[in-house]
Simulated scan of single mutants.
Amino acid sequence: MYLRVLGSAAGGGFPQWNCNCPNCDGLRRGTVRAQARTQSSIALSANGIDWLLVNASPDILTQIRQTPLLQPARAIRDSGIAAVLLMDAQIDHVTGLLMLRESKAALPLLATPEVIADVSEGFPITRILSHYCGVQLHPLSCNAADIQVPGVDGLELTVVSLSSKPPPYSPFRECPRPGDNIGLIAHAGPGTPRLFYAPGLAEVTPQLHALMAECDIVLVDGTFWTADEMQQLGLSHKSAFDTGHLPQSGAGGMIEHLQRLPQRTRKLLIHINNTNPILNEDSAERALLQKLGIEVACDGMEIVF
């Protein structure tokens, strides 16, 4: 199985276009040792040829240019992207669909009914695309297993319902439903290594922890270091929890949950906000992650499992 990290930042990317926080300002000035990042997305394949795009970020065209495997040039119009799966309906995970409108056939689009409703009504991307390439909808049921992806042979998925929040434009923003946000377990069949992927995660329940513990690779929400990160910088009045994210530090934080996983589990963070000190490779927070064996995903990272 092949995994390619196309983008590893939260919404806005890193540096964010209008932000002068210590990380963004430091990266621009060259005073902070860090890597620029596009908005989060990954691609999965069982054969390295046909790929499932998981979330379509606004940076998708840049990400495709930086990933030759996604442009194999087998025909005058071609793509290695065989299907797209949406984990949620957040702006930074769905806007890239508009950039794929030149597809020569309707895009196979996998998402829960809740996400399909949001991108059909509140942010009507599917209706817009109906005037271009169109989409071929494949509704996903929460907690469904052994899902086959059209056009991506050998890849099997399990959908996991997660606690988080739908996007601010959704009428269900303050009353989330199962299906607004999902995690994925991906593998190549029985007995093969398993990946757990969840770029947006507000709570790790005992049931979810048990599922994560069965996986060989865990790639999860790394948005904020502290719950009040944005508040402390004067950038927002909302906490990490208000926006549907579990911070890494503190009691019950993501680090604590990752440390409880088996030692053999490879642990990585993705969807990292531009304010998070772990982006600074010389920070104490980054050093702590390294000491604990927790990796920080970066654009272009490749994992074979």
Rank of each mutant, 00 (worst) to 15 (best):
L3G: 01
R4P: 01
V5D: 12
G11M: 09
G12L: 11
F14Y: 13
P15V: 10
Q16Y: 08
Q16A: 15
N18F: 12
C19I: 10
C24D: 05
D25G: 10
G26D: 09
R28M: 04
V32D: 12
Q35G: 02
I42H: 04
I49E: 15
D50V: 02
L53W: 06
S57H: 09
P58I: 11
I60E: 11
T62M: 10
T62F: 08
T62D: 15
Q63R: 08
Q66H: 15
T67I: 11
T67K: 12
L69K: 15
L70R: 11
Q71F: 13
A73M: 13
D78H: 13
G80R: 07
G80N: 12
I81E: 12
I91D: 15
H93V: 05
T95N: 10
L97V: 04
L97S: 03
L98Q: 12
L100C: 12
K104N: 11
A105Y: 09
P108D: 05
P108S: 07
L109Q: 05
V115M: 05
V115A: 03
S120F: 06
E121A: 10
G122V: 06
I128R: 07
Y132L: 13
V135K: 01
Q136H: 14
Q136T: 13
Q136F: 05
L140P: 03
L140V: 10
S141V: 09
C142N: 14
D146K: 08
I147W: 00
V149D: 02
P150K: 04
P150L: 03
D153Q: 14
G154V: 00
L155K: 00
L155Y: 01
L155G: 01
V159T: 15
V160C: 14
S163N: 11
S163Y: 04
P166G: 06
P167M: 09
P168S: 08
P171K: 05
P178L: 09
I185F: 02
A188C: 07
R194M: 00
R194S: 02
Y197E: 04
L201C: 14
A210K: 15
M212W: 06
E214L: 03
V220H: 02
G222W: 00
T223E: 15
D228W: 00
Q231N: 08
G234A: 06
G234Q: 08
H237N: 12
K238H: 13
F241V: 02
D242P: 03
D242A: 06
H245W: 07
L246V: 08
S249G: 07
S249P: 01
A251Y: 04
G252I: 07
P262L: 06
T265K: 03
T265N: 00
T265D: 00
R266Q: 14
I270L: 14
H271L: 02
N273G: 15
I278W: 00
N280I: 04
E285Y: 05
E285M: 08
L289T: 05
E295D: 15
G300L: 12
F305D: 00
